[in-house]
């Protein structure tokens, strides 16, 4: 488990000054930290969206989410050695969606009626399976992965390098991550609030018997939920890997932050996942900067405390409305 600690400490952290001046004395440092916090928070947000998507549509918490995302990112990497960026990207999304749907059908459907513990255990099985498979197929060495140059026909955007306003800079990649998070959230919002498919998915998560009685093919909805979630997870993986490189541990390392984000947002709210992700990102960065260095690194502790605090004070999160079910 050492890998997790190391991987987290190894990236996204801005240089920690030995004794940082308080925010009012160096506002640009503060602004810089907030911005980088938003950058890393966007990563957490996308993975949190994937978590929320499955939870909201199938009532299962997927502990294998990070590993599935990592696995599909390796698939993207393999595709990219064969074809240009965009086809590889969309093909990956397709493969991920098919994989997610197939997993739901094969291993989650059989425990659907059983207590929630059984489903959690199955997703933990997925966790170790995907880690193991990725190690076996792609090996333990990190792979170079981006930042890419996006080709939009009429213009190109190189995601490498920063954009600056005065002293405060942010990586272009971070901006792209943030934009991607917002786009995914908007798409999910439209799906759930404005389409019949989304409505049927929400109904399925809530009451399966009633859903069947109005004619919703419940099994298909569950598969769609997993498929969509796996695709969103793949997007998360692609961005995480561009930020920190691609290795078997890189997604597992941020799963705790994604969970913290999802919990903060209420586990079933896409908007909540984004707000939660950004909050965790910023708080984590500020803690990293202003907590005295003698204390040591506290990024995980911050996530842990946030999770515990939210669960104690408001278990439905900030944006969650749903009452807790299936104890």
């Amino acid at each position: 488990m050492e890998a997790i600690g190391l991987a987290v400490a190894g990236y996204l952290d801005v240089v920690v000054l030995s004794t940082p001046p308080p925010p009012w004395e160096d506002p640009s440092l503060f602004a810089q930290q907030v911005l980088s916090g938003i950058a890393s928070g966007s990563l957490f947000a996308i993975l949190a969206l994937a978590v929320v998507l499955i939870y909201r549509s199938t009532d299962v918490l997927n502990f294998g989410q990070g590993e599935m995302a990592m696995f599909t990112t390796f698939i993207a990497w393999s595709f990219m050695t064969q074809m240009p960026l965009w086809p590889a990207f969309f093909l990956t999304l397709l493969v991920a969606a098919a994989m997610g749907a197939a997993l739901e059908r094969l291993v989650l459907r059989p425990v659907e009626e059983a207590p929630v513990l059984n489903a959690v255990i199955v997703t933990l099985g997925l966790y170790t399976i995907f880690t193991g498979l990725a190690l076996r197929v792609w090996g333990p060495l990190p792979k170079g992965f981006g930042p890419f140059t996006l080709d939009f026909l009429f213009f190109e955007i190189d995601l490498a390098g920063p954009v600056c306003a005065g002293e405060v800079c942010i990586g272009k990649l971070s901006v792209a991550t943030f934009v991607a998070a917002v786009i995914i959230m908007a798409l999910l919002f439209v799906l759930f609030q404005r389409t019949m498919l989304g409505l049927a998915m929400r109904a399925t998560a809530q009451n399966r018997t009633a859903s069947r009685l109005v004619g919703i093919p419940v099994g298909r909805m569950l598969s769609v939920g997993w498929g969509l979630s796996a695709a969103v997870g793949a997007v998360a993986g692609v961005f995480v890997a561009q930020n920190v490189g691609l290795s078997t541990g890189s997604l597992a390392a941020i799963l705790i932050f994604a969970f913290a984000a999802a919990v903060l947002g209420g586990l079933d709210s896409p908007v909540g996942a984004i707000v939660g992700g950004l909050t965790i990102g910023v708080v984590r960065n500020l803690a990293g900067t202003y907590v005295p260095s003698e204390v040591g690194s506290v990024d995980l502790v911050v996530a842990f405390l946030l999770i515990v605090l939210v669960l104690m004070v408001r278990p439905t999160g900030i944006f969650g409305r749903r009452a807790l079910r299936r104890v």
Partner: peptide, 26 residues
């Protein structure tokens, strides 16, 4: 064939309108 099940089984988290829309799902 439509059934109004025992104990109503409406979708409590959804709005009245959404419940009715779902009734016409097929």
């Amino acid at each position: 064939i439509s059934q109004v099940p025992e104990g109503r089984q409406i979708f409590t988290d959804l709005t009245v309108m959404e419940n009715l829309r779902l009734g016409a799902y097929t």
